[in-house]
């Protein structure tokens, strides 16, 4: 775990030192949900904002951006410029490397979902001076759904980085991730028809299963040799 933490911290430090990544994260990841909330509050929930706010795609934008940003700005260039070879020569296990490279992506997916939600609500409160109705009911749906989508996308994008020989392969994987995201959104919509307790239970089970599946896929695909070949 210690080794994975340091590998992850190295990736995060590298990403944080990238001006382009920070600008993208701040503008699209923070401003977009805040702006959507403000629009929602200003229009009193009559225009497009309510559907946007309820949409998993909007709320998932931050984790997706963070994840794709880390992959595109750090992981992929490192692989292309052979910066991962010294990492592969370290006396750490394949699993520790896999975990270390996945941690920033997973952390971004897990932590940024509630942050996005908070920003969205903050924008709404600033504009309308009140909370939207049924906040508690939406929390499980938005957070857990976003988490599940983030995990799936994380695995798909990491897989793309490792397998893809260039940007084309990476883009295809990310596009596939967005398709999965849309499916998850549709699934959440159907689940909204169920009782709250049933929904929470199902969402928890789905998050656990999908999380395990994503971790297993990542660990299985991440072979030390793939870092350098």
């Amino acid at each position: 775990m210690r080794n994975s933490f340091w590998i992850a911290l190295d990736l995060v430090r590298d990403a944080a030192a990238s001006g382009a990544f920070l600008a993208m994260a701040l503008f699209l990841g923070c401003w977009l949900p805040l702006q959507a909330g403000i629009l929602d509050g200003l229009t009193g929930g009559l225009m497009l904002a309510p559907s946007m706010r309820r949409s998993l795609v909007m709320n998932a934008s931050w984790p997706v951006l963070a994840m794709v940003g880390i992959q595109a700005h750090v992981f992929l260039p490192r692989r292309i410029s052979r910066e991962l070879e010294p990492l592969a020569a370290l006396p750490v296990t394949d699993f520790q490397i896999a975990l270390g490279l996945s941690l920033p992506v997973l952390a971004a997916a897990i932590l940024s979902a509630p942050l996005t939600f908070i920003l969205n609500e903050a924008g709404y409160r600033v504009a309308a001076g009140r909370f939207s109705a049924g906040l508690e009911a939406q929390l499980a749906e938005l957070w857990l759904g976003t988490l599940a989508a983030g995990l799936i996308l994380g695995a798909a994008a990491l897989d793309g980085c490792l397998r893809g020989r260039g940007q084309a392969g990476f883009s295809v994987r990310v596009a596939a991730g967005y398709c999965v995201l849309a499916l998850v959104d549709a699934l959440i919509f159907v689940l909204r028809l169920l009782a709250m307790s049933t929904l929470v239970l199902l969402a928890l089970c789905a998050a656990i299963v999908l999380g395990l599946l994503a971790s297993w896929m990542t660990a299985r695909r991440l072979d030390r040799e793939l870092l350098v070949l």
């Binding site: 080794n3 190295d10 030192a17 991962l84 070879e85 020569a89």
Partner: peptide, 28 residues
């Protein structure tokens, strides 16, 4: 084993002290 790769393989945005110390830390 200490390996010096054909390409220096140094992350452009990070510093030598951080990078070399990281590798020592990852070696226990």
């Amino acid at each position: 084993v200490g390996l010096l790769t054909e390409e220096a393989g140094l992350p452009g945005r990070l510093t030598p002290l951080w990078h070399v110390a990281l590798h020592a830390t990852l070696r226990g």
